[in-house]
Design a protein around this nucleic acid. Sequence first.
DNA 1: GTAGGGTTAG
Length: 623
Amino acid sequence: MIKPSIISRSYYSNSWNIQLREVAKDGYFKECIEIYRQMLRHGDSPDSFTFPFALKSCASLSLPISGSQIHSHVIKTGCEPDPFVQTSLISMYSKFSLIDNARMVFDENVHSRRLTVCYNALLAGYTHNSQPLKAMLLFQKMFSSDVPFNNITMLGVIPACALPENIGFGMSLHGCNVKYGTDCDSFVVNSLLTMYVKCGSTELARKLFDEIPQKGLISWNAMISGYAQNGLATQVLDLYSEMKFFGVEPDPVTFVGVLSSCTHLGAQRIGLEIEQRIARSNFGANTYLTNALINMYARCGNLARARKLFDVMGEKNIVSWTAMIAGYGMHGHGDIAIELFNEMKLTGIRPDGTAYVCVLSACSHAGLTDKGLGYFKEMERDYGTRPGHEHYACLVDLLGRAGRFQEVKELIDSMPMKPDGAVWGTLLGACKIHGDVKLAELAFERVIELEPTNVGYYVLLSNIYTNAENMEGVARVRVMIRERKLRKEPGCSYVELKGKVHLFVAGDRNHPRTNEIYEMLNRLEELIEESYGTEAKNEKLRRSEETTSTSAGVHSEKLAVAFGLLNTTADTEIVIIKNLRICGDCHLFMKVVSEVVNRGILVRDASRFHHFKDGTCSCNDYW
DNA sequence: GTAGGGTTAG
């Protein structure tokens, strides 16, 4: 039998092929295409050695038309059966997202259906083109047809399982790797680690991580980013210290993960440390890193610092702009957010779905209702971005805050998809602002159908009843919570001081400075009483005492603010972070404290800031 | 002589 690779091999092609190899080795793909064109002009016929270079160059340079032209040359010269050519074609079409063409090449050649490399290329193609199911099916076919697989097969198919619903398949691949020894490859291990992380199973990822005998930088990064993506910010910081302890040098990827956790924790001080470390390590020009820094400062409330980084950075991409817009939006500077958003469009950057979420929420916080409505219309009309659930939730928030409930109802009815929990939950939040008990009951009913175990909504409704002095309603919600065996997560709050995060839970007495903290709390009570008198104090604090049930009656945020007051000077603002999606009524207490101590106090929860100063509150009660 | 791959931000 003639080996396919020597079909149509010609003497004249040889010198061209040698040139191609030299040039491709160094990644000069433009030059490769040029040599290929010259070859054709000379009347020399490309052969099975020529095509892989030419096809790979087209793939790298994103030249789909040239790619399909070369495919026709492949057919003309009869090089189709060559396994190298087939693999190159499959890989090229996959990179152009023309996955059906890739599949056709695979199916039309008897050879490919027995070849590991062709399976590998197609598997990676399905995975990268968001068709995980097809990737998994293809692997099964490969397995059952006894086509041998290798570590590269695994790298193609493992990421297909990076969805919570596919974790079972992922675990069986893990088993497969152990059985066939492909798990010794560090690439495969890192890929498995990432797969577990993306499935949301940081425990399994950590177990695997701990079993790696010699962890490389990428394993550390995968684990750190994994914790960061799953919101386990304290674990990120712990692992980062561990990494430093083992003498592993961090790179930009590490820093991006750590910075994202600083953002979650509001740990600006630790973020600053990282920034200085970045400055020392010459990673300054990395766009990912600068974006992470901008995001961290913007969300932590240091808009000036964020803006400075933003203004001096070289190439701003959509993420840089969005981070800045979101920062202004969440701190009540809706006007600047909008200005920046318009400026971004002028520079030719097309806003995407996330950018619209940020600008809509900025409008909502600044009370720019009609501007927000305009942006909502523009997003699909001018940019072809279909509004998703999150955009509808923003719009409900926008209209709901403005008390335009009739329009909210019309909007919800007009939604092309079923409204999700966020939409009804946002409406519930708006009902709290306007004290609309009837609509709140409707929104509650809907949201509970969708998220029956989200205790935050029960608390919210209970607060609405409290405000309306409907004690029967409050009791009814309490019974529901008890009957459904729901428990309010133990709220915890933390405050960052001198680069250390201090965490408190309700009634906490574990902090080494517990006595001082409780003394400070007593002094605060006295101060409030002095300022408002007993009656008013009780009136002002009543709701927060009643609606948030804690065993000791001392909520975590009170401890955090007391600790903050003990450790900062009069001119610094105190930032407290709550781990709950819904802040409950800690605002009331903070507002009062902020007035009596004449200090800015910032309470942050999952995604937004609540700012109290001089009795003003630019916050939303719910998110 | 040529083909297939892991970690990063809003």
